[in-house]
Deep mutational scan, measured.
Amino acid sequence: DLSALRVEEVQNVINAMQKILECPICLELIKEPVSTKCDHIFCKFCMLKLLNQKKGPSQCPLCKNDITKRSLQESTRFSQLVEELLKIICAFQLDTGLEYANSYNFAKKENNSPEHLKDEVSIIQSMGYRNRAKRLLQSEPENPSLQETSLSVQLSNLGTVRTLRTKQRIQPQRTSVYIELGSDSSEDTVNKATYCSVGDQELLQITPQGTRDEISLDSAKKAACEFSETDVTNTEHHQPSNNDLNTTEKRAAERHPEKYQGSSVSNLHVEPCGTNTHASSLQHENSSLLLTKDRMNVEKAEF
């Protein structure tokens, strides 16, 4: 173990290094160091905050020279020094078990990766560091076993998940096959086929009936047209017969005018059967003409 005197000496050296690497504005270890034209180094955030307070150039807090945003430059070497100082402080805390008085939040800088452990060898070769390295080497064999167990647990979990997924996939297939086998029997399929065939026959029977009705309507229309044509021909046949009657009536009127007047009046009210309204109107006109002729003949006879 380190003596108290040596611990104090190391602590004083760390404090001196820390004062050199402090920012003059925030009085902390410089984060993202930036250098000016006057070779003074500050935190990048502190300098941008200072420049944004005034429009135009501002003055350096140490030498009062003008500073602009374009004049600022990043210093990589200074950032490396800060990183190495942080590593020294971490090693000091691990070796002594004491917390550094002016320690900052170094938890963000710590890294437990194997590459980081290899890099620590180049920091300080001390008894405390050696003991700590031995402890780490002793704890390393235990870690692979834990990793193997965790991997086995994960693989077993994956296997159970896969088996569950396969079961879920197989179950719908089985149910679907069961439904297909038990849903419709052979008799049901035959009945469905016969039902479809009967429906098709009914459709075939319905369509000819409609065509037959249309044919019957067409035949009825044709018969009505033929009947009207026969009526017209009958009226045409009746007209010459009426003319013959008129000639006979004229002759009778010349011989017996008194008797014919009474008979002509009675004939006005008689309509021949089986004739249309057109034929009756023609008869009325003929009878009126005959009456006028008879009157003329009677007057001539009187004179």
Rank of each mutant, 00 (worst) to 15 (best):
E148D: 12
S281L: 01
E254V: 00
R165S: 13
K69N: 06
E9D: 04
S58L: 10
E148K: 15
E28D: 10
Q11P: 14
D66N: 05
Q59R: 05
Q201P: 02
R130T: 01
S266T: 01
L5P: 15
I20N: 10
V13F: 03
P257Q: 13
L62S: 15
R174K: 10
L137I: 04
L81I: 11
P172H: 10
N105K: 09
L94H: 15
L203W: 00
R162I: 06
Q147L: 00
I123F: 10
C196S: 05
H238Y: 00
G199A: 03
E115K: 04
C196F: 00
I215M: 01
T76A: 03
S287N: 06
N12D: 15
P61H: 02
R132S: 05
H40Q: 11
T36A: 02
R212G: 01
C38S: 14
K54T: 06
P61S: 05
H278Y: 01
M296K: 08
S113Y: 05
L51P: 13
N157T: 07
T292I: 02
E28G: 06
Y100H: 04
C46G: 13
P141S: 07
S58P: 15
E28K: 11
Q154H: 12
K250T: 01
P208L: 00
C26W: 15
M47V: 12
C196Y: 00
R70W: 07
T68N: 03
Y260C: 08
I25F: 08
A224V: 09
V34D: 13
V82D: 01
R132C: 01
L245W: 00
S228F: 00
Q11H: 03
E249K: 14
Q73R: 10
Q125R: 05
K64M: 01
F45L: 06
P144L: 04
R255K: 07
K259M: 01
D39V: 05
Q154K: 01
A224T: 04
R255G: 08
D231H: 05
S145F: 02
L2V: 15
T233I: 06
D218E: 08
R165W: 02
V153I: 00
E302Q: 03
Q93H: 13
S197N: 06
C63S: 14
L117I: 04
E28A: 10
T248I: 03
N131Y: 09
E258D: 11
P240H: 02
T247A: 02
N191S: 05
P144T: 08
V298I: 05
I30F: 11
R295K: 06
N246I: 05
G274S: 06
L291F: 00
E285Q: 14
D213N: 09
S241C: 08
F227C: 11
A220V: 01
N143K: 09
N15H: 09
Q147H: 14
E84V: 15
Q80R: 13
S176P: 11
A223T: 08
E32K: 12
P172S: 00
D39H: 01
V190D: 11
R135G: 11
V34A: 04
Q168R: 13
G199R: 14
I215F: 00
E32G: 06
R174M: 00
K293N: 01
L21F: 07
L155V: 04
R6S: 08
P240L: 05
H269R: 05
S280R: 02
A301P: 14
T36K: 13
N112S: 15
C60G: 15
P141H: 05
T292A: 03
L158H: 11
S3C: 05
N191D: 01
S228T: 15
Q59K: 09
E74G: 14
L94I: 08
T277I: 02
T235N: 01
Q138E: 05
A101S: 13
L291P: 13
E99A: 14
K118N: 14
N131T: 15
K167T: 00
L158F: 01
V10L: 08
M127I: 06
V298L: 12
T277A: 04
K55T: 05
D200E: 02
S264P: 14
K44R: 08
C63Y: 15
P208H: 06
D218N: 11
F303C: 14
R169L: 07
K19T: 04
N243Y: 00
H269L: 15
E120D: 14
V13D: 03
T233A: 01
T36R: 13
I14S: 15
E271V: 01
V82G: 07
A16S: 09
I41L: 07
C63G: 14
Q18R: 07
P33R: 11
L72Q: 07
F92Y: 05
T207A: 05
M47L: 13
G182E: 10
I206N: 07
I41T: 01
Q53E: 06
E32Q: 07
F303L: 11
S197R: 06
D294N: 10
P272R: 02
S264Y: 03
T149I: 02
G97C: 09
S288G: 12
K87Q: 04
T277S: 14
K167N: 11
A4V: 03
G262D: 13
D66A: 12
E236G: 00
G128C: 13
T230P: 04
S152N: 12
K19Q: 05
K300R: 00
V161L: 07
V265D: 15
D244G: 08
L117V: 02
S264F: 01
T248S: 12
G210R: 07
R162T: 04
C63R: 15
C26Y: 15
M127K: 15
S183F: 02
E299Q: 14
I88L: 14
K222N: 03
E299K: 10
K134Q: 10
D231V: 06
R135S: 03
R132L: 02
K31M: 14
D188V: 15
S35A: 12
E187V: 15
L5H: 08
I89T: 02
K108R: 09
Y260H: 05
Q138K: 10
P24T: 09
S266L: 01
I89V: 05
P24H: 08
N131S: 13
E285D: 06
K49T: 04
Q93R: 13
S35Y: 07
P272S: 07
H116N: 00
Q138R: 04
F42L: 04
E229D: 02
L5F: 04
S288N: 06
G159R: 12
K64N: 13
N157I: 06
E214K: 15
C90F: 08
C60R: 15
Q154E: 05
Y129F: 04
E22G: 07
S35F: 09
Q138P: 01
H284Q: 13
S241I: 02
S263N: 14
D39G: 05
C90Y: 07
T175M: 10
C38G: 12
V121G: 08
A133P: 02
V13G: 07
P240S: 05
D39E: 05
L245M: 13
L85I: 10
P144S: 06
S216R: 04
G262C: 00
A107S: 01
E226G: 01
F92L: 12
N111K: 10
P144H: 03
Q53H: 08
K108N: 12
K31T: 12
I124F: 07
V82A: 08
N246S: 13
N52Y: 01
N267D: 10
K300E: 01
L268F: 02
T233K: 13
L164R: 11
I67K: 11
I67R: 08
K69I: 00
K221T: 09
I88N: 13
G56R: 10
G199V: 01
P33H: 09
E22Q: 05
K222E: 10
Q209P: 04
M127R: 07
I67L: 09
Q201R: 02
D218H: 07
N246K: 12
G97D: 10
V153A: 09
D294E: 15
S156A: 13
Q18H: 07
F78C: 03
K44E: 05
T76R: 08
C38R: 15
P33S: 12
C46W: 15
L164V: 06
T149N: 07
S79C: 07
P114T: 05
N15S: 08
T76S: 01
S176F: 00
I206M: 12
K37M: 01
L151P: 06
L136F: 06
S75R: 13
M127L: 05
S150R: 14
T275I: 14
R70M: 11
Y178H: 13
Q209L: 00
P61L: 06
L85P: 13
Y260N: 07
D95N: 15
E99V: 02
N15I: 11
F45S: 12
E302K: 09
V121F: 01
D66G: 04
K134N: 10
K109E: 06
S228P: 07
I30V: 06
Q261K: 11
R70K: 07
S58A: 02
P57L: 10
L155I: 00
K108T: 00
L27R: 06
L136I: 08
G159E: 11
I170M: 01
Q73P: 10
L158P: 13
L81V: 13
D213H: 12
E8D: 13
C225Y: 01
I124V: 12
L29V: 04
D218V: 14
Q173R: 03
L29S: 10
H284Y: 03
K222R: 07
K167R: 15
N297I: 14
T96I: 12
N267Y: 00
M47I: 05
L48V: 09
K44T: 07
R169Q: 08
L217V: 03
L27P: 12
C38F: 15
R251C: 08
M17K: 15
K222M: 07
A107V: 11
G97S: 12
S197C: 02
Q53P: 10
R130S: 13
I41K: 08
V121I: 04
